[in-house]
Write a protein that binds this DNA or RNA. Sequence first.
DNA 1: GTCTATGTTTGCGG
DNA 2: TCCGCAAACATAGA
Length: 274
Amino acid sequence: MPELPEVESVVRQLDAAGLGGSVIHRARVFWPRTVAKPSPRSFSRSLAGARFLAPRRRGKFIVLDLEDGRSILVHLRMTGRLTLGKSGAPREPHEQVILDLADGRDLRFRDPRKFGRWYLLDVAEEKLGELGPEPLAASFSSQSLARELAGRRGMLKPLLLNQAFLAGIGNIYADEALFLARLHPQRTADTLSSEQIRDLHRAIRRVLREGIRASGTSLGDASTNYQGVDGQRGRHQFRLKVFQRTGEPCLRCRTPIRRIVLGQRSTHFCPQCQ
DNA sequence: GTCTATGTTTGCGG
DNA sequence: TCCGCAAACATAGA
């Protein structure tokens, strides 16, 4: 569920709530596999007393840097969710990790599907280094996108989902960006004109910024959908142009939106203007 | 029971 | 090496 805009929203909410500066009193792991590195035991043991710096984001990772130079990385995957509230509340269903803070609050991780992962690393880059460029960074230009696309003979859509190619894009924003850029999801990546590369670059940034401005996309109404740190829902679902609009008229040309499966992911596009 | 799901990794075959 | 595909992870909702 959460892609770059949702993760960015969570990070901003954690920051606004003053997570930076707070100290971990106790770390508890209830589902061992959630903590990918190190062992859950040493994860818990070595976090007591650690102090957070300001939270940040890289790709779809929430990065919680610690004052001692280490970092906690949280990946929400499909259904992961962080909450920050007063400690002492009974543990809710599907809560896999709880960090009790010295200030009387706790940071909780709830993940019904248990795909989400936590990492405690001496150097954040050992994981973040696998990621491609940040699409919203000033250094991500149309030229750098062109360089990356050159020689890639795969389809555009799966390429946009490849985190080593570009960090942070998921299924929703990939479909939306390709629609905005008027590019077919199955288009071979290295066949774009420089103008189309410019359009794609602009579309990617526009869609992600729009998502952030709307505090993310919350589909459906179930608890497995994206919610912010206080349970806030995003508003970007009302702005989707193709995603989950199968059969509905294209907002540009009225042609019914089509759904196909690419790389095992549903893909929505307008067969007329893409 | 079936199908779908916003993510990522791994292994296979081309 | 690059690419596409299937399965795995584990669960909920339609």
